[in-house]
Simulated assay, not measured.
Amino acid sequence: MTLTKKQIKLINSLHSKKGRSENHLFLVEGEKGLLELVKSSFKIQFIVLNEIYSNHEIVQDNSDYCFFASEIELNKYSTLVTNNFGLAVVEMPKQLEFHNPVGITVILDGIRDPGNLGTIIRICDWYGIGSIILSNDCTDFYNPKVISASMGSFLRINHLYVDLVKWLNQFPNVAKIGALLNGDSLHTYTFPKTGFLVLGNESNGISKPVEDLINDRITIPSFGGAESLNVGISCAVFLDNLKRQF
């Protein structure tokens, strides 16, 4: 089947946050993401594949809503620099309902870079963290660059955007652990069984209003001359140390 002008217009609209919000749809692009998507419970509106993959396993199981395009056309529709496989238009699931915290929940304060957010989503998936809470000024979870960087992990991570200060104040008895440069050593810190691990903005760290709510300030010890670590790398180091304890 060939795409209609209406479908092409819809795909192009999903390149922007406004378009995604208005349509409650987002894009999944590339072979890795699509292969994981079709095995998930996410509802797919339609799939567009490079016409050379007309006999691909994805088509066999989803033929009713598969469309085909040339590689040149596909790259016009895609947000990726190169996309020689395909893309899907997918419905956004309902946001996480968060009531009582269990285990460690990752909290993101002002993460702006889509690549960093996608990496953090993938890392949380690797370490079995099922939910993340994001401040309202974090980048869009469904930004195509976030989805691509997550390498399919977005399918398994629940998320919620909140006014972070108000939200954290709802849990006065839950430990709030801040990843800060001037904290105690992560290597000697004992994680609580339930708590919030707060990671801050790539340039400015945790915002002052959120930092004021932190109970435990911890840092990754430095043994060299680097000024700081990427927030995604920091997330992995914190979660690896956490999993060594539990």
Rank of each mutant, 00 (worst) to 15 (best):
V48G: 04
V90A: 00
L160A: 12
E57T: 08
W126C: 15
P144T: 07
P172G: 11
Q45C: 05
K43T: 03
D137C: 02
N173F: 13
T139M: 01
S131C: 03
G30S: 03
C66S: 00
I157S: 01
I72M: 05
S135P: 09
N116C: 05
C66D: 00
P144K: 01
P101M: 02
K32F: 05
N169A: 13
S131F: 06
L74I: 06
M151Q: 14
L49G: 07
V48R: 09
L87D: 07
I132A: 03
P172I: 13
V174E: 12
L74D: 05
G118Y: 01
L37F: 00
V90I: 05
E97D: 15
L34C: 02
D109K: 11
F141Q: 10
F68M: 05
S70V: 03
H99R: 14
G33K: 00
R156L: 09
R112H: 07
G115P: 08
G152W: 00
I111N: 00
I107T: 15
Q45D: 06
Y77M: 11
I120K: 04
Q60F: 07
V90L: 01
V162M: 15
L35E: 05
F98D: 06
Q170S: 15
D109W: 02
I129F: 04
E73H: 01
G110I: 14
Q60L: 05
N75I: 10
H99T: 15
L160Y: 12
K145R: 02
E71I: 09
D64K: 12
R112D: 08
Q170P: 14
S150K: 12
N75M: 10
P172N: 09
D137Q: 04
